[in-house]
């Protein structure tokens, strides 16, 4: 005999596991979506990294034409 008999306890555990899996998947999807939103939002992605970069120097920025 195998131990395949379903006990209500197994059902409850499986329900909990499925619930937790869905919550974690939703969380991952949300963090992924947030990352995309933040990156595509136009914020500064580059940060100062101890070397001079003209792209980050306000003095070198050429104003857009009217």
């Amino acid at each position: 005999m195998s131990i395949a008999r379903e006990h209500p306890l197994h059902k409850r555990r499986s329900g909990r596991n499925v619930g937790l899996a869905l919550v974690l998947l939703a969380f991952i999807a949300l963090v992924f979506g947030l990352t995309i939103a933040k990156v595509s939002g136009g914020g500064t992605i580059e940060a100062f990294d101890h070397t001079y970069r003209p792209a980050m120097d306000p003095a070198t920025i050429i104003p857009a034409e009217e």
């Binding site: 909990r16 619930g19 937790l20």
Partner: peptide, 15 residues
């Protein structure tokens, strides 16, 4: 013996 459990295990909806 699962039936000897002290209290019923929670379901997801209990959380």
């Amino acid at each position: 013996d699962f039936t000897q459990a002290r209290q019923p295990e929670a379901e997801f909806r209990d959380y």
